[in-house]
């Protein structure tokens, strides 16, 4: 292989940006940098990453010193550092919506345990099961209303919604909708599954194409002859618009596989 064509890895790129390549490697690298646009773009991306690491204090002492020497040279690199600082400030000030883990667990596990017992003892009768779900939901809601914590931020009403994923029985149905939930409430979304293929699931919520929040380490619980994964979403998140809950199964080895998309339209 020609030395021009050897692979240049991330470590070598970092060392070039930090001015830490030995002379023998520097010449090959520089020659290629002038002719290889892909390598140049890799270098620019590496610069951005080092700027972010520098500004968030993640470089070790040696790298920090090298960075300060390298980035004090050239107006463009100095601009990158200045921009990086305001960019990090912006990202910090833009809130990331977190899932309501406490509410989700509190609402679904009690319900699911109760449901499992009835499921086994009911002879799997769908009508009976549906009635029991309703009783269970009402019971859970009642218990929550009675024993809810006293802090203002957790005094929230629960609105339950059941969604059916695309690619299964609901594929041709129109998008289910919900009127914009009242402020300070929680929408408990039941994502139905035809069968339980995994011990763990995860859900990711999108508004149009915007990624809103992840919900991790979820269990599928029996629900009306099927299974359901339940997530709780704060009403503040659900402004009018089209949402998708992407449900994926997580294998024991940690591999993630998409199980289905669950659309929901929130109307005014």
């Amino acid at each position: 292989m020609n030395t021009f064509e050897r692979n240049i890895g991330p470590e070598e790129l970092r060392r070039h940006v930090l001015g830490d390549l030995p002379d023998s490697e520097q010449e090959d690298f520089d020659r290629r940098l002038l002719t290889d646009s892909a390598l140049y773009e890799e270098l620019l991306a590496t610069e951005d990453e080092l700027v972010d690491e520098y500004l968030s204090g993640k470089l070790n002492e040696r790298e920090r010193q090298q960075f300060e020497l390298q980035f004090s040279v050239g107006e463009e690199r100095q601009r990158k550092v200045r921009f990086g600082r305001s960019w990090q400030e912006y990202l910090k000030s833009t809130p990331l919506v977190r899932p309501q883990e406490d509410i989700r667990k509190g609402g679904s596990t009690g319900f699911s345990r109760m449901f499992s017992v009835f499921w086994e003892r009911s002879g799997r009768n769908p009508v009976l099961i549906a009635s029991l779900i309703l009783v269970g939901l009402l019971g859970t809601l009642g218990a929550w209303l009675l024993y809810r914590p006293t802090q203002n931020n957790t005094q929230r009403a629960i609105i339950a919604v059941t969604l059916v994923g695309s690619g299964s029985r609901g594929e041709s149905a129109s998008t289910p909708h919900l009127t914009r939930p009242p402020a300070n409430s929680v929408v408990q979304v039941h994502l139905e599954l035809a069968k339980k293929n995994y011990n763990r699931y995860q859900v990711e919520l999108f508004r149009e194409r915007e990624y809103i929040a992840p919900f991790k380490s979820l269990k599928a619980e029996p629900s009306d002859g099927h299974f359901a994964v339940v997530v709780g979403v704060n009403s503040e998140v659900l402004e009018p618009g089209d949402y998708t809950f992407e449900l994926s199964g997580v294998s024991d080895s940690g591999e993630v596989e998409l199980e289905g998309n669950y659309p929901l339209r929130v109307k005014r």
């Binding site: 520097q26 050239g74 690199r77």
Partner: peptide, 10 residues
């Protein structure tokens, strides 16, 4: 690219 080359060479 030339600026990067010279910068990397200190």
């Amino acid at each position: 690219r030339l600026i990067r080359i010279f910068t990397s060479r200190k």
